[in-house]
């Protein structure tokens, strides 16, 4: 029963990948070796696709592997399998949280957690900036600062920043506009 095997395999992956995103990768390589549902090359392709679509890599890989082995229903089954553990765990935590939210220790824990949360967000932003605004490989090759900074990207960043500040536009609109600018001015260099 391929659907059940898909569900169980991706359920296990979903259960053990804490921190999301790239934490799924070692599990996917393992699954590829054990089941041959998809190749290592497929995983590499899926990383690229995940960077160019809204979904997270784990979710995308589940859909892709499920589709390749079990068609469209397989794609759904594998994805729900991957998501199920996290949904169940969050539902349990929510219940716990509702009961203990006003407990002083829990309050104090959140005092630390919020600082951590914002630090993680800053780090995530820096990671995106590292590929969006600068070209580190080009800089390492030539050693010239003019090659380090992606000027078009920096200009767009400043424009988006000022625009958002002034007009409080919905993020979706700004994202779509940035995609158009990217296409018009060949931000990807192709």
């Amino acid at each position: 029963m391929i659907y059940l095997r898909l569900f169980i395999n991706f359920f296990k992956t979903g259960l053990f990948t804490v921190g999301g995103g790239l934490a799924t990768l070692p599990f996917l390589y393992e699954m590829s070796d054990a089941t041959h549902w998809f190749s290592h090359g497929d995983i590499a392709d899926m990383i690229a696709i995940s960077e160019s679509t809204p979904g997270a890599i784990g979710i995308n890989m589940a859909t892709y592997a499920g589709f390749k082995t079990g068609g469209i229903p397989g794609g759904f089954v594998a994805t729900v399998g991957l998501a199920a553990p996290s949904i169940i765990i969050i539902l349990i935590i929510s219940r716990f949280l509702a009961r203990f939210r006003t407990n002083p220790y829990v309050e104090k824990a959140f005092y630390g957690l919020r600082a951590a949360s914002i630090a993680m967000i800053t780090a995530a932003g820096l990671n995106v900036a590292r590929i969006a605004l600068v070209d580190i490989p080009a800089f390492q090759e030539t050693g010239s600062v003019t090659d380090l900074v992606l000027w078009k990207a920096v200009l767009l960043a400043i424009a988006v920043f000022l625009f958002m500040k002034k007009f409080k536009t919905h993020p979706i609109v700004v994202l779509a506009a940035s995609a158009c600018v990217g296409i018009l001015f060949r931000f990807g260099g192709v």
């Binding site: 960077e51 160019s52 960043a157 920043f161 940035s178 995609a179 990217g182 001015f185 990807g188 260099g189």
Partner: peptide, 26 residues
């Protein structure tokens, strides 16, 4: 899909916007 020029260029633009959005959220 990921190698299509229009996709690459669009997402290079989106990434720029994403870092500004994150920075403003911070």
């Amino acid at each position: 899909f990921a190698d299509l020029p229009v996709v690459k260029n669009a997402f290079a633009g989106i990434r720029v916007c994403v870092c500004v959005l994150i920075f403003q959220a911070v």
